[in-house]
Amino acid sequence: MPIPVIDFSKLNGEERATTMAKIANGCEEWGFFQLVNHGIPVELLERVKKVSTECYKLEREEHFFKESPPVKLLKEIIDKKSEDKVDNMDWEDVFLLSDDNEWPPKTQGFKETMTEYRAELKKLAEKLMEVMDENLGIPKGSIKKAFNGGEGEKAFFGTKVSHYPPCSHPEMVTGLRAHTDAGGVILLFQDDVVGGLEILKDGNWTDVQPIPNSIVINTGDQIEVLSNGRYKSVWHRVQAMPNGTRRSIASFYNPSFNATIEPATQLVENENKEVSQFGYPKFLFGDYMSVYTEQKFLPKEPRFEAVRGEKDLIISV
């Protein structure tokens, strides 16, 4: 069962209402959907593919296969002819791009291309958040304002560049362990050819099918809270594959660590049987991340309960 594919360009035309409804369905029923005709130039996306692949080959691949813990542990297990598996590690080469950290220095055109790409992705994320505002029936700009902790530009926008190399024993490792995302809106530019990304839908793992130059969208834990449970963050994972290196570039529009997150007032006031009765807490995103760092691969509900326990402290801050 393929996840929804939505033509984002149809927001501006006669099919706006239908497109809004498709996005609402993607957020409510799936937690994942793909955007095509999203406005990011194909020429830019082709450059992103080129520089990310070159960066991995030039600056990352050799170290991964020689020095990375999962490779070493897998070799030990195979040498011992053990039936063990590589636990608590991901078969993933990964680094983060943000405005204040060092970027790979050796790949020609990498910084210029990824800076341009990140700017386009941030604009797309903000358009999507306005669509979510409208679909939820809350004032325009509500989600962005919550993530920024008020007015200004304090929200965090980061980009995780990952490659999942081919694995000779994919049954013994996981590309990326199952989890929900901690933050807000996630925009993924995944590989055109090499699959492996799966979401948990109705108790079954479902492939997120590769579509050239699409952007995969998923909603994180903070969108679940702000929507009072109408939108869900969804379990997802990446399977290790025997052939091909999977490219995965995920950009995260997350709250500022000092932002207070809670269900939108209008949604609590209008609460009915169609909206979750879980009772989401009010908390600082930084406090949530402290819990998430330790519990990323565990169920999310105890994370919400953990920050609920800090409520009195948070309100006094």
Rank of each mutant, 00 (worst) to 15 (best):
N254W: 04
F283P: 00
D192W: 01
G31F: 04
I215F: 10
L11K: 01
Y292A: 07
A146I: 12
N258M: 14
N213T: 12
I143A: 05
P170I: 07
T107G: 04
L313F: 15
S52D: 06
R177C: 12
I261Y: 02
G175I: 08
L74R: 02
S168G: 06
Y280F: 07
T53V: 08
K145C: 10
F257S: 14
N135C: 12
A125S: 15
V238W: 11
D202R: 06
R237Y: 01
F8R: 03
R230S: 15
F156P: 04
W103R: 02
T206Y: 00
K10M: 15
I3K: 13
N148D: 00
F32N: 02
V51D: 02
V268Y: 03
K80A: 14
Y292T: 00
I3R: 10
I315F: 13
P2R: 14
S276I: 00
F65Y: 12
V86F: 00
P4I: 05
I78C: 10
G158N: 11
Y164A: 09
F32K: 05
G309I: 03
G196L: 11
R230C: 08
G109A: 02
L97S: 09
R47A: 10
S98K: 13
D287V: 09
K154G: 12
Q295F: 11
A21V: 02
S52K: 05
I78P: 02
R118P: 03
V51F: 04
L197Y: 01
E262K: 15
E83T: 15
G109N: 09
